[in-house]
Each structure stands twice: as structure tokens, then as C-alpha cells.
Amino acid sequence: MRRRRTIRIAAALLILSCAGSVFLLRLVDRLRENATLEETIYISSPRLLKHLSLGYEGLLADVYWTRAVQYFGEQHHNDSGEYKLLWPLLNITTQLDPHLVPAYEFGAAFLASRPPLGAGLPEQAIELVEYGIRNNPDDWHLYYDLGFVYYDLKDYAKASDAFERGSHVPNAHPFLRIMAAQTAQHGGETRTAQMLWTSVYETTHDPQIRDNAKSHLVSLTADLQCEELEQIVAAYRQRTGRNPSSFADLVRAGMLRGIPVDPTGTQYRLDDDGHVFVSQPADFPYSEKALPSGYVPRRR
């Protein structure tokens, strides 16, 4: 029957063209691989977007929030170290929905950080979080985040001030008050930093922020240990009049019990000037003291 033949031909065409469309879609994707996210913020005016969303700005904010997280995750995964769309994406997200607190937290953490780890835009981070505080004055997390941004900028007075403001919010976490005091008095000390990052690590729900806090803590620990090791090196120099050629000298002198290892379990290294540093600096992105001299974080 003719009908059977038509059905058979149509079914064959269906299968062939389904396969063909998958193939062609992959081809088209390869042609415009880099175009994908650029165009999502072609409409960069949040106000215009708000009008275009026809009152569904909450939903649109969620879309942009997802895009921001995806964008960051993708760039991070690719080790591109470039996050130039992070600020516009977060800005649009929070303009569309000013009560989306996770977006401010995310922004505080990753806008402010130095380039390979974040966008390196601390001013925008401050602007974003201050905007968040204006819209959500009763959320202590935002003051806490703001304090951190200032802390990273080594502006300990402003950081202390932010923690202080946060401690007055109803239901604020009690450690905000302690942090305010600690930052004011011992701002530049590594132990302060360690305390702050430990609190972040323990209070956040965001895995990316937690990972970030963890790598801060690892770096800080390495910094502290290097500091201590360098003090031992200095004592050795005082005693012998020269720098140790290796940690083995220190062990023989009875000043160390064994070859010291960093928090990842790798041995520390020692140069001729008596400087102690980690062997894998890439694992300690926030470290300030434990890096080899002249080390520049590599952009991949």
C-alpha cells in the first residue's frame, strides 16, 4: 500500500534528520564557541531588562544568577583567570532582585580577589555589597562580607567598622563583635586572618566560598609555618654565623626534629638567603610569605 510506503519513508527521514540535526548543531556550536556568554549581556542595562521582563524580574534575576555562577565556574574550570563578565552579571542579577543575598556573598568573595582567583575588582565588590546592605539592612552576612573585602584591601579600620555595624543587627552571629575588636587591634597579623577565614569556612553553605576559605587557610598556615621556620633559621645564623645549607643542618643542630612539610604534605624548601618557601606555590594562591622569591602567579 502507498500509505505504508509513505510512513516508511517518513520514518527513515525522521531518523536521518534527527541524527543530522545533532551533527549540524555540534558543528554550529564549534563555529560560535566563544560567542556563547558574551551575548547574554548584550542588554547590559538592568533598567531596560526590568522593563523587558514584564514584571517577571524575579525569574529573570534567577536566570542571570545562574548565568553568573555558571560563568564563574566555567572560567575557573578553564583556568582562564579572566572574569570580566562577573561584575555585569552580578550587577544585573541584584538590580533585578535586590534581595538575592547569595549573589552579594558570591560577589564579595570573587569580585574582590586578585585576578587568577577572582575578578580583582574590590571597588565594585564594595559597591555591590553596600547596595545589598541598603536593600537588606537586617542581614548580618552582608556586613560580614563587606568587612572581608576591606580586610583583603588591608583597610583594617573600615573592616572593623563593617563588622561592628553587623554586630548591631538583630540575630547577628556573636563572633562579629570579636572580629571587630580583633581586626581593629591586630589587623595585619596572620593569626587574625586565620581566625576570620576559619569562621568563613565554618559558616558558609556555598561550596565555592568554602573552597576559597580553605585555600586561604592553607596559605595562611603555610605563611605562619614559614615565619616560624625563618625564625629558626635566624637563630641558627646567630649561633653559627652563616645560613643553613639545608633543613638537614637544622636537624643536626637539634633545632628541628625532622624535615618540615607544608599543609599539603610536601617538603618546604630553603634558599641560600635563608628564605623558607613552599615547593608548589600554585597550591597556595593567597600566600604572601611562603612563596619563592620572584614568584609571579602564573596565568593559565
Binding site: R3, T6, I7, A10, A11, L13, L14, S17, C18, G20, S21, L24, L25, L27, V28, L31, R32
Partner: peptide
């Protein structure tokens, strides 16, 4: 190239959808 392959993609997608419609309608 994008113009060409986009066209090919659209046409093949249309053929797929219409073949499906024809099978069901038959």
C-alpha cells in the same frame, strides 16, 4: 560559514519535525 551551517541545521530540523508530523498524521 555560520550562515551556511545555520541554514543547514534549520532545514534538517524542519525535515525531522515534519517527518514526525507526517508519520503521526498518516
Amino acid at each position: 560559514q555560520l550562515v551556511f551551517w545555520n541554514t543547514a541545521y534549520a532545514l534538517v530540523y524542519i525535515v525531522a519535525v515534519l517527518s514526525g508530523a507526517i508519520v503521526i498524521f498518516e
